[in-house]
């Protein structure tokens, strides 16, 4: 393919595909726990981290990692002291976007660069940034594999998991930190406002056709990766924004699967 001759496309493909394949591995747990919007909350806090990094002259990745880590701990604490999951997430969400806008405004010339993280700009990535994204995604995969039995128990029934001896409080914190890692890893390629969509949409698509949790995770990961590749091609040839194209392709896959199932059911009914 001719577009693979371009170095910027090679880098964009690697970064976007890696993160789009990893995001649903975490998304499956947050969807089952009814926390589909937690990635959005983390995304807004990462926006504040990027703004702060530009303001004080740090690497944006470091700023985003630092503030999302703080948000992960704060979210777990707020929930534990009785601030309901929805409300605690809202506090993080609005605090993040307000702080992000405040810091980026103060950053002056860096404001445009800060805003580029909201919707992603994978075509501008260097190989060093691709390596950092891949390392973060690798860390997420290692954590998910290591804690897989405990995460499934937590996602399916938290009280039963606690009775069975699963350290649920620590595990909830670990899951939130992993969500933060995915958001930070995906901010440059898919964007802070869209990366959480890649945690949720491929999982919702896969769940329509699978019979087990493991199969849902694996299929969702494949759907995520395929959406990234197709989305990048669409963006390249249509001169469209990449992050948006990737998410729209994933959403298209969801709608196509849902429609196919509806049609199949209708045909079954008609035949019987």
């Amino acid at each position: 393919m001719e577009i693979l001759q371009f170095g910027f496309m090679q880098r964009a493909l690697v970064a976007a595909t890696v993160i789009a394949a990893v995001a649903p591995l975490v998304g499956a747990f947050i969807v089952q726990r009814g926390q589909s919007l937690i990635g959005d909350g983390m995304g807004h806090m990462a926006f504040a981290g990027v703004g702060l990094a530009f303001l004080v002259g740090l690497n944006p990745l470091v700023g985003a990692l630092a503030l999302t880590a703080v948000a992960a701990v704060a979210l777990a604490r707020l929930t534990r002291v009785g601030v309901g999951g929805d409300l605690s997430l809202a506090l993080i969400f609005y605090g993040g976007i307000a702080a992000g806008f405040f810091f980026s405004s103060r950053a002056g010339g860096g404001q445009n660069q800060v805003l580029s993280f909201l919707f992603g700009s994978p075509l501008n990535l260097g190989w060093d940034e691709v390596a950092a994204v891949t390392a973060l995604a690798g860390a997420v995969v290692v954590i998910v594999i290591a804690l897989y039995p405990q995460l499934v128990a937590l996602a399916f029934d938290e009280a039963a998991a606690r009775v069975a001896g699963v350290p649920t409080q620590g595990l909830v914190l670990a899951l939130t930190v992993v969500v933060a890692l995915v958001v930070v890893a995906g901010m440059s390629s898919i964007g802070l406002l869209l990366i959480s969509a890649m945690m949720v949409i491929p999982v919702a698509t896969a769940a329509q056709v699978t019979a087990s949790y493991r199969a849902t995770l694996l299929l969702a990961s494949a759907i995520g990766a395929a959406s990234a590749v197709i989305g990048l091609l669409v963006a390249f040839y249509a001169n469209a924004p990449t992050g948006a194209a990737i998410v729209l392709v994933a959403l298209g896959a969801y709608c196509a699967t849902a429609l196919t199932r509806l049609l199949a059911r209708g045909l079954q009914r008609a035949a019987s």
Partner: peptide, 28 residues
């Protein structure tokens, strides 16, 4: 511990063997 069956309502597909296996998660 056997909770009320309402807790078996899941957003995502989970197989019978996977549900039963989660009982071992605290031992691993």
């Amino acid at each position: 511990y056997v909770p009320q069956r309402a807790s078996a309502a899941t957003s995502l597909p989970v197989s019978v063997a996977e549900v039963v296996r989660t009982g071992l998660a605290g031992q691993l």
